[in-house]
Design a protein around this nucleic acid. Structure first.
Lengths: 124, 124
DNA sequence: GATGTATTTAACCTCTAGGTTAATTATGCC
DNA sequence: GGCATAATTAACCTAGAGGTTAAATACATC
């Protein structure tokens, strides 16, 4: 079980099915069956996804006869947005802190350099 | 392995150690040993976290002698921020779509209602 | 080339995530 | 009460996450 709220939120959002469920809930309350319709997975699987979303505080659930309608609770998403905002200047600097390391790195690029999987290039 | 980029990003961010590493990288490039310092886990564990961050495109790695300095790559965080922004109006509506369901729900709250774990309350 | 430092890889462990099918619970309707 | 529908719980499976320790790799220096 994930203790801190932000981790629980990110973990809940890491699954595309769950993000799709949230997206669906934007257009209003829905039953479990309705939420399950677009997916090929079983009902219990959907049920588990909903439990994860509920634990993360991203949905709330009601009771109407045998239905348990879900609705969006976007509160934790504000935390996500706020958290990401702290990094805005780093994605704004066109290439991630480009200015910071250009002088350091570029003028010694024959020796070092940032490659995808380390330095496997031939060296002159 | 996670196929879509957004899922990989969220999954990477779901771990507090990894978020702390990103936060540290805001103050500039750092070696693996430097990044590991604040934590009690082993070097291989840190190495794995860095691999996750690298795969998610959140860091880039260099080569300097036996060091593999890391730097922040905030690109994917913009996607996170953009994604979250779509839900702004739902967390802005003070209590998550409050207006949408107040009429529907509140006037039948004796029968139904949104509780933490379903309707376990006594009914009149 | 031996030694020391930085880091990764290998091999392993445990726990959990995400899925399944079958059974159970809750409710409305006849 | 009996049946149909909605959803959850139970029991199970597999793959992967996150951690460990020990061994291997890469580089600088003496």
């Amino acid at each position: 079980m994930i203790s801190d709220r932000l981790s629980a939120t990110f973990a809940a959002l890491a699954d595309p099915t769950r993000r799709a469920i949230l997206a669906r809930l934007v257009s209003g309350e829905a039953s479990v069956t309705q939420l399950a319709a677009p997916f090929e997975i079983s009902m219990p699987a959907i049920s588990k996804h909903l439990k994860v979303l509920e634990r993360a505080g991203l949905i709330a659930r009601g009771h109407e006869a045998q239905w348990r309608p879900c609705r969006l609770k976007a509160g934790p998403l504000k935390d996500v947005a706020d958290w990401a905002e702290h990094y805005r200047r780093y994605w704004t600097e066109s290439f991630d802190r480009l200015d910071d390391y250009l002088r350091d790195v570029e003028n010694r690029e024959k020796k070092h350099g940032y490659g995808k999987h380390g330095d496997k290039r031939k060296r002159a």
